[in-house]
Amino acid sequence: MKTKELDLAYKLSHALDESANTVSANTAERLASARKIALSRKKQGVAVPAFVPQPALASYGSALTPSHSRWAWLGRMGLALPLAALVFGLFAIYQFEQQQQIMDSASIDAEVLTDDLPISAYLDHGFDAFLAKGDK
């Protein structure tokens, strides 16, 4: 279907080009004056401000060469890379804190198991006060 439309457009264009050469001088003058009138009535274009975001590597302008276009992905990663670094950092901090908590628990368990006091002494509320006084 597209080829039929293109063929018709080509035939119309060719027919108009041929008939343009056979237009009388009077008709050509009337067409020229009608064109001038139409152009004078045409509304002048109003400049509308528009925001056009620029890529991070906009300093290269529109003359990006192939050597610069291989770095274009860096401009698109302007938000993704810091976000990924933040997520990775938070995960690392969480893992470090978990490891510290495990080490502290293991240290307390080792001290309890190697001490001569019975476990019931550690459960006594007065024993906590005794330990607090012993640290000072």
Results as ranks from 00 to 15, higher is better:
L113C: 07
A80Q: 09
A106T: 12
T114Y: 10
I102D: 11
F88V: 05
S105Q: 14
A106S: 15
I93W: 04
S107W: 12
I108T: 09
L90G: 04
Y94N: 04
S105M: 14
Y94S: 05
G89I: 01
I93M: 10
A80R: 02
M103A: 15
A84T: 08
L86Q: 08
S107I: 03
Q95N: 06
I93C: 07
A106W: 10
L117S: 11
A92Y: 01
I93D: 02
I93G: 00
A84R: 09
L86I: 08
D104N: 11
I102E: 13
L86C: 08
A84Q: 11
D115Y: 04
V87M: 07
D116W: 04
D116F: 06
Q100I: 08
Q100T: 10
Y94W: 15
F91E: 01
Q99G: 06
T114L: 14
M103L: 14
A110G: 09
E97W: 03
P82Q: 03
G89M: 03
A84L: 15
Q95A: 11
V112P: 00
L86N: 05
D104Q: 12
A92D: 03
I108L: 14
L90R: 04
F96T: 01
Q101T: 12
Q95I: 01
L81Q: 04
Q101Y: 05
A85L: 14
L117V: 09
A106D: 13
F96K: 04
E111N: 08
A84K: 07
D115Q: 10
V87Y: 04
S105C: 12
F96C: 02
T114G: 05
D116L: 07
A106H: 13
L83C: 06
D109K: 07
A80C: 00
S107V: 02
L86M: 08
A92R: 01
Q101D: 14
S107Y: 14
A110T: 13
F96L: 11
Q99L: 10
M103P: 01
L113E: 14
S107M: 13
A92H: 00
Q99C: 06
Q98Y: 12
A85M: 12
L90I: 06
L81E: 05
A92I: 03
L83N: 07
A110P: 00
S105E: 15
D104F: 02
S105L: 14
I102T: 15
L81I: 13
Q98E: 13
F88T: 05
A110E: 10
L83Q: 10
F88E: 01
F88N: 00
G89N: 05
A85I: 07
I93T: 11
L117A: 14
V112G: 01
L117R: 10
F88M: 03
Y94F: 15
Q95S: 07
E111M: 11
V87F: 08
D115M: 06
D104P: 00
V87H: 02
E97I: 05
E97D: 10
S105F: 09
V87Q: 03
A92W: 00
V112E: 05
P82A: 02
E97T: 06
D109N: 15
G89E: 02
I108N: 05
A84D: 09
P82V: 00
P82I: 01
I102A: 15
Y94R: 06
G89T: 03
E111S: 10
Y94H: 09
I102N: 09
L117K: 06
E111G: 03
D115R: 06
Q99M: 10
E111R: 01
A106L: 14
A85H: 08
